[in-house]
């Protein structure tokens, strides 16, 4: 798994590629923690190049969302069918983080 971080319109964007699973989740969690520590409150996770997300990956997203303590927003964009399926199956779609079809849509909402 690789994670590339960029900033756009005041939103911290994290581009994931590969698999977010048990083996890679701790690395992702550490990165999220660092981003929160520097005060980021609007975070967009771009899953365009993510192949697979496991329950461990979901837990990282949940933990991050909780650490935002309602004072920020966590969005997810460009999720493929498999990733969307996982969100649907678990009932997590748009539950604590919002799903967007494109980065543009996400930025439009998060940057406001």
């Amino acid at each position: 798994m690789k994670i590339k971080t960029t900033d756009k319109e005041g939103v911290k964007i994290m581009h994931f590629s590969g698999n977010l699973d048990t083996q890679t989740s701790s690395e992702a969690e550490q990165l999220f923690r660092e981003i929160l520590q520097i005060g980021a409150t609007r975070i967009l996770v771009d899953f365009e190049e993510l192949d697979y997300i496991s329950s461990a990956g979901l837990r990282v997203l949940l933990t991050t969302s909780k650490r935002l303590h309602g004072k920020g927003q966590l969005g997810i964009c460009n999720a493929n069918e498999q990733v969307k399926e996982v969100f649907e199956m678990t009932g997590l779609a748009n539950l604590v983080f919002k799903l967007y079809d494109t980065e543009g849509q996400a930025l439009q909402e998060l940057s406001n």
Binding site: S55, L58, T63, S65, T90, G91
Partner: peptide, 12 residues
């Protein structure tokens, strides 16, 4: 948050 991320919830 713990329960929604628990394997029990994340099962088919």
């Amino acid at each position: 948050f713990l329960l929604v991320g628990d394997d029990f919830h994340l099962k088919i």
